[in-house]
Simulated scan of single mutants.
Amino acid sequence: MARDVSRETSPAGPAGEVPPEAGSLFPGERLAQAIRYADLLATAGVERGLIGPREVPRLWGRHLVNCAVLGEVVPEGSRVADLGSGAGLPGLVLALARPDLEVTLVEPLLRRTTFLEEVVAELGLTRVEVVRGRAESLHGRRTFDVVTSRAVAPLPRLLEWSMPLVGPHGVMIAMKGSSASEEIREAGPVLARLHCGAPELVTIGAETPSARTQVVRVSWAVPGQVGWRLATRSRGGSDRGTRRGRRHRG
């Protein structure tokens, strides 16, 4: 039986001091939820092998604040899928920073989805869904306005996993590091085969220097025309997942 993550954190704040910029990134009561989430990562997340012990001192700067600025490039009211969500980075952080979004966390490993479900339930995130499975299991069955990821795979492979889930007017937004430009060059054949538009390399977090990072944004070459055949035709084009995770609704 899964342990209750709420019992695994002391009130002392194991994730350390909250940086000043967190107040503007997590509005209202969401800051308290983000603090709680950080503490859960620092304790239960480490114990379960989801976060390395060396990451605890930099949870806020390298992970929470870094992921929260992704909200700068996500349109209001979007339905978002976060692939390979792991411990909830960036998807769960994005949900905390942007209460207007509907976020689906897609993760194949049971121990990770168990943690995610417990955190989502404890924090009362009614617009977050956890799905245990690989991205391919949703191909041809569900689409989203935005598909995100962070440190999941090189761009060519990531496109093949992500673009089938991008709706006709949607976009893939992948958080990338210094290799982003090289990955874009290598992804040329895949971009052409899937009929994607030209990738955009965008810097986010300009007003939060400690969290400044790059994202690669890719949409369809012809708005409204999905190039990957299974995204519209596979299995009747149903918009339902093969295995939907527990949906947490209020």
Results as ranks from 00 to 15, higher is better:
residue 109 L to K: 09
residue 120 V to I: 13
residue 61 G to K: 14
residue 138 L to E: 06
residue 233 R to N: 05
residue 126 T to I: 00
residue 126 T to N: 11
residue 242 T to L: 15
residue 90 P to H: 02
residue 5 V to K: 02
residue 99 P to Q: 13
residue 139 H to W: 03
residue 104 T to W: 07
residue 204 I to M: 03
residue 226 V to L: 02
residue 92 L to S: 07
residue 29 E to H: 07
residue 232 T to K: 11
residue 214 Q to Y: 06
residue 30 R to G: 01
residue 191 L to D: 12
residue 36 R to N: 06
residue 56 V to H: 11
residue 131 V to W: 08
residue 123 L to M: 12
residue 161 W to K: 05
residue 62 R to H: 15
residue 173 I to C: 14
residue 185 R to Y: 02
residue 181 S to Y: 01
residue 22 A to F: 12
residue 154 P to V: 11
residue 249 R to S: 14
residue 102 E to M: 11
residue 215 V to A: 09
residue 185 R to G: 00
residue 14 P to G: 09
residue 14 P to F: 07
residue 21 E to G: 04
residue 209 P to L: 13
residue 12 A to K: 11
residue 156 P to C: 05
residue 105 L to P: 04
residue 106 V to E: 07
residue 107 E to C: 06
residue 215 V to C: 01
residue 234 S to E: 14
residue 240 R to F: 07
residue 33 Q to A: 14
residue 27 P to C: 03
residue 212 R to A: 15
residue 45 G to L: 10
residue 37 Y to I: 04
residue 82 D to H: 01
residue 165 L to I: 01
residue 69 V to N: 07
residue 130 V to W: 04
residue 69 V to P: 08
residue 79 R to W: 11
residue 173 I to V: 15
residue 167 G to Q: 02
residue 34 A to W: 09
residue 236 G to D: 05
residue 188 G to T: 15
residue 41 L to P: 03
residue 168 P to E: 09
residue 150 R to S: 03
residue 224 G to D: 04
residue 101 L to R: 09
residue 207 E to M: 11
residue 163 M to P: 07
residue 148 T to S: 08
residue 237 G to I: 04
residue 247 R to N: 04
residue 100 D to A: 10
residue 91 G to D: 08
residue 90 P to A: 05
residue 143 T to P: 00
residue 243 R to A: 09
residue 216 V to R: 06
residue 3 R to G: 15
residue 220 W to K: 12
residue 102 E to S: 15
residue 195 H to Q: 14
residue 242 T to E: 15
residue 97 A to E: 01
residue 214 Q to D: 06
residue 205 G to I: 08
residue 133 G to A: 04
residue 88 G to L: 01
residue 190 V to H: 02
residue 144 F to N: 03
residue 15 A to Y: 12
residue 182 E to I: 06
residue 108 P to H: 05
residue 162 S to V: 04
residue 80 V to D: 01
residue 121 A to I: 07
residue 150 R to Q: 03
residue 198 A to G: 01
residue 109 L to I: 13
residue 150 R to D: 05
residue 227 G to W: 04
residue 104 T to A: 12
residue 202 V to H: 13
residue 31 L to W: 05
residue 249 R to K: 02
residue 133 G to T: 02
residue 119 V to C: 14
residue 235 R to P: 00
residue 94 L to Q: 10
residue 54 R to E: 12
residue 71 G to F: 02
residue 187 A to H: 11
residue 20 P to K: 14
residue 117 E to L: 13
residue 188 G to S: 15
residue 144 F to T: 03
residue 191 L to S: 12
residue 215 V to T: 02
residue 115 F to P: 02
residue 80 V to Q: 03
residue 223 P to I: 07
residue 241 G to E: 10
residue 138 L to D: 01
residue 99 P to S: 13
residue 241 G to V: 09
residue 188 G to D: 14
residue 40 L to W: 03
residue 195 H to P: 00
residue 176 K to G: 04
residue 191 L to W: 12
residue 212 R to C: 13
residue 210 S to C: 11
residue 85 S to R: 02
residue 247 R to D: 07
residue 146 V to F: 02
residue 131 V to R: 13
residue 46 V to K: 06
residue 51 I to C: 11
residue 89 L to Q: 02
residue 16 G to S: 12
residue 237 G to V: 08
residue 193 R to L: 10
residue 246 R to P: 01
residue 50 L to W: 06
residue 30 R to Y: 10
residue 234 S to P: 03
residue 178 S to C: 00
residue 166 V to D: 05
residue 211 A to C: 04
residue 175 M to W: 05
residue 177 G to E: 08
